[in-house]
Nucleic acid binder design. Structure first.
Length: 1182
RNA sequence: GCCGCGGUGGCGGAAUUGGCAGACGCACACGACUCAAAAUCGUGCGGAGUAAUCCAUGAGAGUUCGAUUCUCUCCCGCGGCACCA
């Protein structure tokens, strides 16, 4: 034994090689290569200040293995690393330790790097990025500005999620079940000024691009399905209809419609509008104004005042010049009216063509705005037509003067001149838009529910009878946290808006309107039509408040054992099924028909004027005589069943209602002879009372409803009570019904815009300036980056202002546009900003002109492999995809998706199977493990623990297996490269195994290869040489495939198997040993390098060529063939792989252990599976 | 509730166009070496049974010559979404 192989000193070896690699820049990625590229990336760590535990590097080990493998296969590999240094985790750590975040980050980076380096990773540190480095965040700010310029960044004042503990606003993505993801505090809703990013503009692409295909039709994104699924859930696309429900005030109104210049009661929308309003029961007056072609103010106003009746129920509608007449008339009234609607009012003499019109001089254009306001109680609406742009400024001015609601809308024909103008109808009888995915159930909509926050509630409030109750409910709803509100299990609450009704546009029925907190303000339209018969939530609500439930969709079933026949006529009948349970017998009442092989429940038709319940009681009495029954429940709405009624020789479409009874006693009355002959009464045990043993195809529905509390049917079926749509399949009627009620088909998303500002110090300053004159002005690009100023106090204020706001010197700047005084935006960006594009910066980390050079971006894109934790599924990975798509749109990048293959790391749990972390005190420190066993051992072990993407608990004892493996590789090296000595025990022991070697060769002990080191014998063509070759070729194949598929555990297992075999070889050559070292090199880089170099190699094993295998040599020539008799293994024999099937059959049957099973038996057939087994099937097998 | 994934020895886990279940490793037991221990090497190791053999991949059914693998029903665990209309 030579000195250098005496002992495997991992500490010394690992330290030595890390130093050498760093000095010789072994892993530097130089771009001037003609090689194919491979970009492999880890999700970079964020600096929370907590130390590393053994779970953190698991993903880094994997990328290290893959990158080394690819490098050895001739790829130019980019494998960079950096740090996510901005954001809450880093800042909170700084606050806790009272170290300034900048210094804390610097220290943490240094420590982190030190720890990473202990693993011997092959990162190219010359490309390191740090999101808090001004040279980096200059470009983060730059990207933000591009978004701002494209209108994707905007300010909002809507209430947002506020974490009272972190003292900052949060994005939806930062929540976990209504709590702050970082600290677990329940979030509050707080209205404040926010910067938002319009990620919703990209919702559609973010969703559909998940399924992009490459040119061969394969999925472009090789991602775990569940990550894609999470993103789909998060984006939450759903299609449905937006439908208007008109509101009708319960008190009827009177309308006065006043036409304009050259108008008449017979032209434009007047006849139509009159008709529509009268339909709703309102009174309508349409005065025909005198001298319509040459109108004079006094004449027309007086006419109106004289001929029309004005009272507190009167709403005045004026069109064009008629609007002016209306205003003037109201000014002269001495009583209040109900409201005023001005449709495209001709409000100013300077308007279009006015000078040429005869009335421009005759009319007086001064208005007593205050008086009009008073007399209408401020209930004034101004309708503008967006097609008439020139009129807009006047209308804006008018509505301001009158404090009126300005409704910008598109008329059917310019200036509201069409015969039908639905927008006017909407304005005079306001409507609520609802969103529904089930417009097919609209005939069953029995009430409307608005979110308490719905803006209409405030508008309608003055008209309502129970104002105080409603105000109370709204404030109650507002004070709830998200967690309280979204508690599904809690009982639903709500209040009816009394004094108002909605009109179901499908059947013009009046339905009540409620507010309830189970309707969310920010999804859909914030209002729903409630269909209690076909929606769980509506059902619960309706039950509680005794609202009507109307079935309009019924389940449908075709009896496949007895289907309708094409040549027979079809009859539709209303039926009843009586399900009768007898508790005394613990059995169900059924009828066994004598003429037919049927078992049915008691059933029959429902006669005219009879209810289902009456029919059921009658049928039970007629058919069985039983009369002492307790009615339990109607089993929901009817079920439609199609079948052939044999006894009537016709097809039936039965609309059947189920009724459920329990029997109190078997008291009975006489049954007619006829009935008695037809069937026997049979009591069926509940386990036999199942669809398979009964002849009622509706039975599954009855059973479900007996068991279930809720009786809503949410599936698809056949429409009933839906007028022209009766009998249609609900699924296919959706779009037609939407059209029928003048709704339109829309797409909605759950995804919300990204709340992009944080009221904290440690983040990228948002590069905008608020100027008194110019509004919001972007910081000119040449002035980027806007550096985060150094401050003494960076504690969050909690006021909704960032700590930066207190820094007058920094805040007050000159406006870049006008030079006037301006103030900097003091909010900072969220943690996820910098990480949304960092992968691009590695490609070109030092570029001062652009975020990334286009040519370089084209060369390296996309990222071939991206490895990280699944916790980023709906945050980082959505944000990064969003930014990437935006960068594609502005030409910075060239591909729609950044990450081609995504691989998730399964967590390493603590020994107690809980998440490893401080709070459970179950952290295993990698430094300790490395000190004890070495980095190579830890790397091998973490990869061997189980499937890479699966979580596994750390087990301190099992790591010795990996250590033994590494050490045995070391000792095998000493045997190969040195003279064997008699003292050496390892594997030179006589073989005591009783098992034959795979090839069955007898092996003589104590035979070794060459004598002197460096003096190699040429491989002899012996069985042993072949044996070693076979092992190696198989292993090369397996390890290569497994690394590419990230099955590291089985790759290591195959190397262990291989090592077990190689140790038994008596003629292992240096070449063969080197192959083994190469296979292991990506996993255990230090020890393999040491052994490789000690064998006399000059260059690093890590830049050597990956071994290739011969497919022929990787396959066994001989195999054990298992022999089965009737599928049970009874023996086996050895055969050459290419032995033909007949021979295999023959040999199998001749085996002594087989003949014992088959002698005297009839062989039915023999099945041969090449290379695997022979199965002999005998018929008389006991 | 909806969607996705999974359930195999004492433990981590192998095994897929359906073909010998438990590879590899840990733990354990025995043996060799040693004065002894550790390390190392060898042997054994799902359960029952002396054995032949039988039973066994969450439970039950089905398809098949043959099922951990395919189909159906159910149970349990994990993950995502969740009063999203």
């Amino acid at each position: 034994m030579t000195e250098k192989h005496k002992k495997y000193d991992h500490i010394k070896i690992e330290k030595k090689w890390r130093k050498k690699w760093a000095r010789s820049k072994t892993y530097r990625t130089n771009e001037d290569s003609k090689k194919p590229k491979y970009y492999v990336l880890d999700m970079f760590p964020y600096l929370s200040g907590e130390g590393l535990h053994v779970g953190h590097p698991k993903g880094y080990i994997a990328t290290d293995i893959v990158s080394r493998y690819k490098r050895m296969n001739g790829y130019l590999v980019l494998h960079p690393m950096g740090f996510d240094a901005f954001g809450l985790p880093a800042e909170n750590y700084a606050l806790k330790t009272k170290i300034h975040p900048e210094k804390a980050v610097r220290d943490n980076v240094a420590r982190f790097k030190e720890q990473l380096e202990m693993f011997g990773f092959d990162y190219d540190w010359s490309r390191e990025v740090n999101t808090s480095d001004p040279a980096y965040y200059k470009w983060t700010q730059w990207i933000f500005l591009q978004m701002f310029k494209k209108g994707l960044a905007y300010q909002s004042y809507e209430p947002i999620n506020w974490c009272p503990s972190c003292k900052t606003g949060l994005a939806n993505e930062d929540l976990e079940g209504g709590r702050c993801e970082r600290c677990g505090t329940p979030v509050e809703k707080k209205p404040m000024r926010q910067w938002m990013l319009k990620i919703t503009d990209y919702a559609d692409r973010l969703l559909s691009d998940l399924d992009l295909k490459d040119s061969t039709g394969k999925a472009l994104l090789d991602w775990p399905e569940y990550i894609k699924e999470s993103q789909r859930n998060w984006i939450g696309r759903s299609e449905g209809a937006e439908i208007e429900f008109r509101l009708s005030l319960s008190k009827k109104r009177r309308f006065v419609l006043i036409h304009g210049f050259e108008g008449s009661v017979k032209t434009n929308f007047f006849p139509w509008l009159k008709r529509e309003l009268e339909k709703q029961g309102h009174e309508v007056e349409v005065p025909e104004l005198p001298n319509s072609l040459h109108p004079r103010e006094s004449e027309q106003v007086e006419y109106v005042l004289k001929n029309c009746h004005f009272d507190e129920q009167t709403v005045v509608v004026g069109h064009s010049l008629g609007a002016i007449v209306a205003i003037k008339a109201i000014m002269k009234l001495n009583r209040h009216i109900s409201g005023l609607v001005l449709v495209a009012p001709a409000v100013d003499p300077r308007f279009h063509q006015a000078d040429s019109r005869p009335f421009s001089k005759d009319f007086n254009w001064d208005f007593d705005y205050g008086r009009v306001q008073t007399l209408t109680d401020g209930k004034i609406a101004v309708l503008s037509d967006t097609q008439e742009k020139f009129r807009m400024p006047y209308l804006k001015n008018l509505s301001q003067q009158l404090s009126a609601r300005l409704v910008e809308t598109k008329s059917s024909e310019e200036h509201f001149c069409a015969e039908e103008e639905p927008e006017i109808l909407k304005a005079v009888t306001p409507s609520i838009a609802v969103f529904t995915t089930r417009p097919d159930t609209i005939f069953g909509a029995t009430y409307l529910v608005l979110a308490p926050e719905h803006p209409w509630v405030q508008i309608i409030l003055p008209y309502l009878e129970n104002k105080e109750e409603i105000k109370g409910y709204i404030s109650l709803a507002k004070n709830q946290t998200d967690i309280e509100r979204s508690d599904v299990s809690k009982e639903k609450t709500g209040v009816e808006l009394k004094g108002i009704k909605a009109i179901n546009p499908a059947n013009n029925e009046e339905i009540p309107v409620w507010i309830a907190d189970y309707v969310l303000p920010d999804y859909g339209t914030g209002a729903i039509m409630a269909v209690p018969a076909h929606d769980h939530r509506d059902w619960e609500f309706a039950k509680k408040y005794h609202l009507p439930i109307k079935d309009v969709v019924i389940p449908t079933v075709t009896d496949h054992t007895n289907p309708p026949r094409a040549d027979k006529t079809t009859k539709t009948r209303r039926n009843v099924h009586a399900i009768v349970y007898n508790p005394a017998r613990k059995a169900y009442l059924t009828l066994k028909w004598k003429k037919f092989p049927w078992n049915t429940v008691v059933l029959g038709g429902i006669e005219d004027g009879e209810t289902a319940l009456e029919a059921a009681i009658r049928e039970i009495r007629e058919e069985t005589g039983f009369v002492d029954l307790e009615f339990k429940k109607i089993l929901g709405g009817p079920v439609e069943a199609k079948y052939f009624a044999t006894h009537k020789d016709e097809n039936r479409t039965a609309i059947t209602t189920g009724v459920y009874f329990e029997m109190k006693s078997e008291k009975k009355v006489d049954v007619s002879e006829e009935e008695r002959k037809a069937y026997d009464i049979v009591w069926k045990d509940p386990k036999d009372f199942i669809p398979e043993k009964m002849t009622n195809s509706e039975l599954p529905f009855w059973l479900e409803r007996i068991a279930k509390e809720n009786q809503d049917f949410t599936g698809n079926g056949i429409l009933i009570d839906s007028m022209d749509f009766n009998g249609k399949d609900s699924q296919f009627a959706r779009k037609d019904i939407t059209k029928f009620v003048s709704g339109h088909w829309v797409t909605k998303y759950k995804l919300r815009d990204w709340v992009f500002s944080r009221q904290r110090y440690w983040g990228e300053p948002i590069p905008l300036i608020h100027c008194e004159k110019c509004g919001i002005v972007p910081v000119p690009e040449k002035n980027l980056p806007v550096k985060l100023p150094k401050v003494k106090h960076y504690e969050p204020t909690g006021t909704g202002e960032s700590p930066l706001a207190a820094m007058d010197k920094w805040v007050n700047v000159k406006c870049p546009k006008c030079g006037g005084s301006g103030k900097r935006e003091t909010n900072t960006m969220p943690q996820w900003a910098g990480s949304s594009w960092y992968y691009l910066r590695y490609i070109d980390p030092k570029n001062k002109k652009r975020p990334v050079d286009s040519a370089k971006e084209k060369y390296w894109s996309p990222i071939d492999l991206y490895v990280g934790g699944a916790e980023h599924a709906t945050r980082h990975l959505i944000y990064a995809r969003f930014w990437h798509k935006f960068l594609l749109d502005i030409g910075v990048v060239s591909l729609p998706e950044p990450f081609k293959k995504l691989q998730n790391v399964g967590l390493i749990m603590g020994a107690d199977n809980r998440k490893m972390g401080k709070r459970f005190g179950n952290i295993v420190n990698p430094e300790d493990v490395i000190k004890k066993h070495g980095a190579d051992t830890l790397r091998v072990h973490e990869m061997f623990m189980g499937p890479f993407d699966q979580e596994t608990a750390w087990d301190d004892s099992s790591i010795v297996g990996s250590r033994r493996f590494v050490e045995r590789v070391w000792r095998l090296g000493s045997v190969v490269s040195t003279t064997p000595s008699p003292q050496m025990k390892y594997s030179l022991m006589p073989q005591t195994s009783t098992k034959p070697f795979p090839l069955g060769e007898t092996r003589s002990p104590f035979v070794r290869l060459s004598a002197k080191s460096g003096d190699w014998l040429p491989p002899a063509e012996t069985a042993d040489v072949k044996f070693v070759q076979k092992i190696l070729h198989k292993t090369i194949k397996k390890v290569s495939e497994d690394i590419q598929a990230m099955r590291f555990n089985t790759a290591i297992s195959s190397m262990m198997i291989s090592l077990n075999q190689l140790e038994k070889s008596q003629s292992l050559t240096r070449k063969e040993y080197e192959i083994f070292l190469k296979l292991l090199a990506p996993f255990a880089p230090h020890i393999t390098e040491e052994l490789w170099i000690s064998l006399g190699n000059k260059d690093s094993v890590h830049v050597s060529a990956w071994p290739e295998y011969e497919p022929i040599l990787a396959v066994d020539e001989e195999m054990m063939i298992a022999v089965q008799v009737n599928g049970k293994v009874r023996g086996s024999f050895k055969a050459m792989t290419d032995t033909n099937q007949d021979q295999l059959k023959e040999s199998a049957q001749q085996l002594p252990e087989i003949s014992k099973w088959i002698s005297g038996k009839t062989i039915v057939k023999v099945i041969v599976i090449p290379k695997r087994l022979v199965n002999i099937v005998i018929s008389d097998y006991n």
